[in-house]
Amino acid sequence: MAHRPPISNHVRELRDQHGSMTQAQLGDAIGVTRQTIIAIEQGRYSPSLESAFRIAKAFGVGIEEVFSWDE
């Protein structure tokens, strides 16, 4: 199994704050599948820098408000 970096995110909370945006809608907005959004929310996958910026842009916030490095 791949080593999981200590990265957490607030994607689910931000989706809820944005009118209950669905995982599929967010996936469409940033160009990934719904399953990849699920994996990101569950911490099973760390997105690329480009996708991380796209997610932040979709919510209209800075990247540091979506992702954080927990040590």
Binding site: G31, V32, T33, T36, A39, Y45, P47, S48, S51
Partner: peptide
């Protein structure tokens, strides 16, 4: 719809 979609970065 999924069948037509290209692979994303995780895939």
């Amino acid at each position: 719809r999924e069948a037509d979609a290209p692979l994303d970065e995780r895939e």
